[in-house]
């Protein structure tokens, strides 16, 4: 059975906004990220595990706020003290996590179905995000993440590339449609391609 993604019937493909006389390859690209497994990991206060010694898919858990560790398939985002988000394209990542983290010490929750994920890519991606979020994007580098708001909607921004700027934007599934329209409306002045 194929799952219906949060933006399945919302996301439109094509070229939109002020794209006249602009090279299509220079336009922003907006897409829905599908088939991403999102797992929230919380280390219990009484846990005796030293988190620096634990690795998932070869990745350490970042201890500094807003940091991300990543490889080709998986990213681990610092979310809060003793709390992380694991984002992965691997279908069996939940099994890997449950194997490497004992449930006695960690709360492991698969929240893939409850998040809408939008990817925005292009030179003006930061300009779009600046319109609705109070974060200082001039100091927001590659492999950083942040929990913030965009026009009042709580989101997580994950910086996955800087050539060109590419961000995965996570929000609650129920806010997905509203958030998608906020993003696409903000991108109209630059012109964007719905991919």
């Amino acid at each position: 059975m194929t799952a219906i993604t949060p933006l399945e019937f919302i996301h439109k493909k094509g070229i939109f906004g002020d794209h006249h006389k602009k090279n299509e390859s220079d336009l922003l690209k907006i897409s829905e990220v599908k088939n991403l497994t999102i797992i929230q990991v919380v280390q219990y206060k009484k846990s005796e595990v030293n988190i620096t010694e634990v690795k998932i898919d070869g990745l350490e858990f970042p201890e500094q706020n807003s940091n991300v560790t990543s490889n080709k398939d998986t990213r681990i985002l610092w979310s809060a003290p003793r709390t992380w988000l694991i984002l992965s394209n691997k279908e069996n990542i939940i099994d890997i996590v449950k194997k490497d983290l004992k449930e006695k010490y960690f709360a492991i929750t698969d929240i893939s179905h409850s998040r809408a994920v939008i990817q925005i890519k292009g030179m003006q991606a930061k300009e779009v995000l600046k319109k609705g979020s109070p974060i200082n994007f001039n100091e927001f580098d590659l492999n950083r993440c942040v929990g913030t708001v965009f026009h009042g909607i709580t989101i997580v921004i994950d910086s996955i590339s800087n050539d060109p700027d590419t961000f995965n934007l996570l929000t609650l599934r129920s806010f997905g449609e509203s958030f998608y329209h906020h993003i696409t409306d903000s991108a109209l002045e630059f012109g964007y391609v719905g991919v």
Binding site: N65, P134, I135, G147, G152
Partner: peptide, 11 residues
């Protein structure tokens, strides 16, 4: 104390 300086909007 955990994330650093942020806008009041987030609080």
């Amino acid at each position: 104390p955990y994330c650093g300086k942020r806008s009041q909007n987030e609080f």
